[in-house]
Design a protein around this nucleic acid. Structure first.
Length: 245
DNA sequence: TCTCATGTTTAGGT
DNA sequence: GACCTAAACATGAG
């Protein structure tokens, strides 16, 4: 569920229902937020920013974050109790095991859309600027940093570094400028490949590095190590992924 | 049955 | 404050 492209799929599915401008009639779920705040409120828009799914209202924004295990169902229910159910006249949206928050501001005041790798407003130059402001940061951390690449996650990290032949333990400053730019553009490229493959249910089949045992370029074993500040799984080939001096 | 993982926040230590 | 770690949350695949 979690990475940015999956949230785009959710947004597109909900857009099919044409709920923009519709009013929420009932609210259920075990969330701790004030559910009454949502009743009789008119949804103005559904949006996504990175891994955040946003339900927008004139005066406030409802944010759903699926963390690692969250899920949703549209006009269907699970046996397990929902974290949040939004019931409209004809449709219902059910969210499970997710983080729910209300911000008392419209989404445009909260979010910088140019930081979202999936957004039409994405600006690679902004990401580049943020990277250069953190020269000592490991690239494996940078690709998980939501302030730089909102929507990128561990799968995208591993696949992008493999595609661009970059060793995960490079610091930002060690990468040649051209490589750094390539890392940024490949992040968005891969995210859109991820989106298409996920829609076809063929995402896993297309993984070249993530969870893989052997490098498909060199035909030698991948390294699997828990790297960076967040100690997330990294799969990499020390032969074709370069560690720059 | 058990381990582990597409994630983030918070509390606590140094 | 910077920087680190562990814990908490919670679900399903293998």
């Amino acid at each position: 569920m979690p990475e940015g492209p999956s949230i785009v799929i959710l947004k597109e599915a909900i857009d099919q229902l044409n709920l923009e401008g519709k009013v929420i009639r009932h609210v259920e779920g075990n969330t701790k937020i004030d559910k009454d705040r949502l009743i009789n409120q008119k949804v103005t828009d559904f949006r996504s920013w990175g891994k955040h799914f946003l339900i927008c209202f004139d005066e406030f924004t409802l944010r759903i974050h699926f963390l690692l295990f969250g899920s949703y169902l549209i006009n269907e229910q699970k046996k397990t109790p929902p974290r949040l159910s939004l019931i409209f006249d004809k449709d219902e949206l059910n969210f499970y095991a997710c983080s729910v928050q209300i911000f008392e501001e419209p989404a445009d005041k909260i979010y910088d859309w140019s930081g979202d790798i999936m957004s039409d407003s994405w600006k690679s130059a902004n990401a580049l600027k943020k990277l250069k402001a953190n020269p000592g940061m490991l690239v494996c951390d940078a690709l998980l940093d939501q302030n730089i690449f909102a929507g990128s996650g561990n799968i995208i990290k591993n696949e992008v570094l493999f595609r661009a032949r970059i060793h995960p333990l490079n610091t930002v400053v060690k990468l040649p400028d051209k490589k750094l730019k390539e890392m940024v553009t490949e992040t968005r490229n891969y995210a859109f490949d991820f989106l298409e493959w996920k829609k076809e249910f063929t995402l896993k089949k297309h993984w070249l590095a993530h969870t893989k045992k052997t490098c498909p370029r060199c035909n030698i074993p991948f390294h699997k190590e828990y790297l960076g500040k967040t100690k997330r799984r990294s799969y990499f080939c020390t032969n074709c992924q370069v560690l720059y001096e």
